[in-house]
Write a protein that binds this DNA or RNA. Structure first.
Lengths: 199, 199
DNA sequence: GGAATAACTGCACCGGGTCCAACAATTAGA
DNA sequence: TCTAATTGTTGGACCCGGTGCAGTTATTCC
């Protein structure tokens, strides 16, 4: 399958590890790509073979959760109510995050000085999640403005989920499961949209 | 009040207009700050006296709406239910956007090629709105996890509102009022959170 | 006619990101 | 075994957004 070609000398995880160290040592802003590449033993350009941008390093885990969410969405049984389906898929995805090991970026964002960067680059990620929910939801809703409602539900649910993830990460190593935080805020949103539109 | 000092030679609106023209002519990405400043008749550095970054140009109207939202929030009568208060303030803010004149960025984002940039820089703005709602809401909710719920509600409502704004802008010049789009999706979110938490 | 003040300008610099032409290491096939 | 195709790596040049600063210009107050 992998045919000819020079084998990869440095792996993605090595760059991630080097970056995490440097971010913790001296903060995100003061760490240059040059330094990350150097610690990983590769050239600056090679970094860009593995990551499209510096901020991509912050979102590795979350990007993985999007794949998990997409898989959970297609696995929803057809006879389930669409809104319950979304809740089901979200809980399923949340189970992938063990209570003990929250992503480093979420727990150490203060020492990394990374909050500005998270704000600056987070929306693209969030919208990717929302798009996944929306594409699941849109064809399964009825009514004239199903597309509009699907997008609104997707974005609203995602907002609630973001709050849950933030709370979960902030709760420290003895935190409850992400799932329990999630259900407390996702469920209300979905029940609000459960009844067909009145007007 | 304005004492001594050299008077401003070029105004913010002039830079905005020059930028809008260039974005429409050749797209956002291919327009440099140098070009914008040149068309407005100032130096590149002067641009940064008026805008902190290139992307700030895209959010002028939305930034104004945040001020409007904050003012609407503090004007809410104390006897109103907090969640109804949020809805009230949002509708109030929406009325500031006439149906005929949606912001250029929202209607022309395709020809400006600006969607990537909106995704890249939109979260900071969205969170500013959410923070405003959250700070209004948090002290007015009861229960153990009032802070958590306040943030979740703020983010969820904002997601729904974003969907409404998007739909409104996409609907073309004969669109209905933003308010009508807004209430269709914001209300369900708030009703979902209306009942006190069960557990 | 000076100070004091505030806007404007030019210049140098940093760092993220792109592009490209070389080069190195591997495999498939003649 | 030699060669070609393939793929990863590297260095260098470049663009542009953004920052810092020192110096200039235009204005008001005394």
């Amino acid at each position: 399958m992998s045919g000819a070609g020079r084998p990869r000398a440095s792996s993605q995880p090595m760059l991630e590890e080097a970056a995490s160290e440097l971010f913790l040592e001296q903060g995100y802003a003061k760490t240059t790509i040059e330094q990350i590449a150097q610690r990983a033993g590769v050239s600056r350009n090679t970094f860009f073979n593995y990551f499209g941008s510096k901020s991509d390093l912050l979102w590795v885990e979350l990007d993985a959760s999007r794949s998990a969410l997409e898989m959970a969405l297609v696995a929803i049984p057809d006879d389930l109510d669409p809104l319950e389906g979304v809740e089901h898929a979200l809980r399923q995805t949340a189970r992938g995050f063990g209570a003990a090991r929250a992503p480093l970026v979420l727990t150490q964002w203060e020492v990394m000085g990374v909050d500005d960067e998270l704000r600056a680059t987070g929306l693209a990620r969030a919208l990717a999640h929302a798009d996944a929910i929306e594409t699941y939801l849109a064809p399964r809703l009825t009514g004239a403005d199903a597309g509009f409602r699907a997008r609104a539900i997707a974005l609203a649910v995602l907002g609630a989920a973001a709050a849950a993830v933030g709370r979960w990460a902030a709760a420290g190593p003895r935190r409850e499961s992400l799932e329990s935080y999630l259900e407390r805020v996702v469920h209300p949103v979905l029940t609000g949209f459960a009844t067909p539109p009145i007007r």
